[in-house]
Amino acid sequence: MNEVPSPDLRIGDSERESALSALGEHLSAGRLDVDEYGDRSARVAAARTRGELAEVFADLPEPHPVFGTPPPAPAKAVQPKPPGAVAYSDRPLSQRVSAAMMPVLFAGAIVLGITTGIWWFIALPFLFGAFAQGIWGKDWDKDRRERDRRRHRS
């Protein structure tokens, strides 16, 4: 470490984290054994000034702690959508078509029931919905699982 800027200046948590990270790299490179790493880590935790922190790294090559700049923020993890929340546009075309046909069929059944006097036609949209779920429902679940697997891989 060349010259420490303002060795009497107090340090904060970000400088201690930077120093501990640098010590970890020295440990993984084999420059420090586990006991010496523990001793130096304790000195880093107890250090109050830049000079005290620089003494820990006096006999070590780079990397050294970074003074005055906070460590980079960790990348935000992408939170997956809840399993029940699926956008309408993510649904398969067959399911969107059958959903769009339901109100039309229901209105048609009401008109047919009123004009002919046969009210059981009102059940046709519900029967169609059950039929559509039986035909296309399992494919939709399979498509959703495949899409979720692709998202998790990337």
Rank of each mutant, 00 (worst) to 15 (best):
L9G: 06
R10F: 02
G12L: 03
D13I: 05
D13P: 01
D13Y: 12
E15N: 11
R16A: 04
L20N: 13
S21A: 15
S21D: 14
A22D: 10
A22L: 03
E25L: 13
L27C: 03
L27K: 14
S28R: 10
S28Q: 12
A29M: 14
A29Y: 14
G30K: 14
G30N: 11
G30W: 09
D33P: 07
V34T: 04
V34W: 03
V34F: 09
D35Q: 10
E36N: 09
G38V: 08
G38P: 00
G38T: 06
D39Y: 15
D39I: 13
S41A: 11
R43V: 05
R43H: 02
R43Y: 02
A47N: 06
A47V: 09
R48V: 07
R48F: 07
R48A: 07
R48S: 03
R48T: 09
R50I: 02
R50K: 08
E52I: 14
L53E: 09
E55M: 04
E55A: 12
F57Y: 02
A58H: 05
A58M: 13
D59R: 10
E62V: 08
P63M: 07
P63E: 07
P63G: 10
H64V: 01
P65M: 01
V66I: 12
V66Q: 00
F67Q: 06
F67A: 01
G68T: 09
G68A: 04
T69I: 08
P71W: 08
P74M: 01
A75E: 13
K76S: 01
V78E: 01
P82Q: 13
P83V: 15
P83S: 09
P83M: 11
G84Q: 05
A85H: 08
A85L: 11
A87L: 15
A87I: 13
A87Q: 12
A87G: 09
Y88P: 01
Y88D: 08
R91K: 15
L93C: 06
L93E: 11
S94N: 11
S94Q: 14
S98V: 02
A99F: 00
M101L: 11
M101S: 06
M102N: 06
M102F: 15
P103V: 08
P103D: 04
L105V: 11
F106W: 12
G108K: 05
I110P: 00
I110Q: 00
I114P: 02
T115F: 01
G117W: 11
G117Y: 09
I118M: 13
I118S: 12
W120K: 02
F121G: 03
F121L: 06
F121K: 03
A123F: 12
F126C: 06
F128V: 06
A130F: 08
A130H: 09
A130K: 13
F131H: 05
A132M: 07
Q133A: 14
Q133C: 06
G134E: 03
G134Y: 07
I135S: 04
W136N: 01
W136H: 04
D139K: 15
D139L: 14
K142R: 15
R144M: 08
R145V: 10
R145Q: 12
E146W: 05
R147T: 15
R149G: 14
R149K: 15
R149T: 14
R149Y: 07
